[in-house]
Write a protein that binds this DNA or RNA. Sequence first.
DNA 1: TATCGTGCGTTCAATAGATGAACACATCAG
DNA 2: CTGATGTGTTCATCTATTGAACGCACGATA
Lengths: 116, 116
Amino acid sequence: MLTDEYRYKILKLVEENPEISQREIAKELGISLGKTNFCLKALIEKGVLKANNFRNSKNKLAYIYKLTPQGIEEKASVTMRFLKQKMKQYEQLQSEIEQLKNDLPILEKTNSNADE
Amino acid sequence: MLTDEYRYKILKLVEENPEISQREIAKELGISLGKTNFCLKALIEKGVLKANNFRNSKNKLAYIYKLTPQGIEEKASVTMRFLKQKMKQYEQLQSEIEQLKNDLPILEKTNSNADE
DNA sequence: TATCGTGCGTTCAATAGATGAACACATCAG
DNA sequence: CTGATGTGTTCATCTATTGAACGCACGATA
């Protein structure tokens, strides 16, 4: 599943470091190689990303992932979408936390366990 | 999967309304009936919840889900755990939102599109 | 040339999780 | 007795994810 979260994160990673490998992306995002490959392909399919081969300095062949012009637009809009999602989550979290505090048994009491 | 989220939410629902049905829980939590059944069984298995039959006023048979003494303890501790999780998420969200704002193309500009 | 070792993207069988239609059962209404 | 209704329970099916295994392209070495 290619969600806005991974659209955003992958486009960001790739923009910052076009020579990144799928394995590095996977590790960075904490997802499997298979899923990374799937998401990357979807982004390429959509035309927001392009993969080119190139010769890595003197050693090996490597891939460059480049954002297309459409990709740059897409990144901007997905960032905005994702930000709005996060801000909504942020508000929800506030009320959930209030709720949870109310659900706790009396915690005024002593100030023991200054645990952190 | 029985996570703290559902431990907390189910114990809360059941405590507030012991006569609630599995279908109502499912609807309330936005999960499937099968998953609800699975979670409920796990809680009963663990001994934090107990299911009793009883005759519903004059109409039908129904179930009552009651928190055991251990269940009351468990609810308190899971609430605390869940709260801590949420507070950590809250902090993370703050930085993520900052990050996202930085990633946005210049948005000072005009105040066009007063969309909401 | 021939054979390794390395790192790349790609594949896909296997697993995990979640779903919801279908079932057995118990009660009430007629 | 029969049908309608509302329980909890089951489980085949689906979806999403995983990661070992693969083919390929180099550079290095014999």
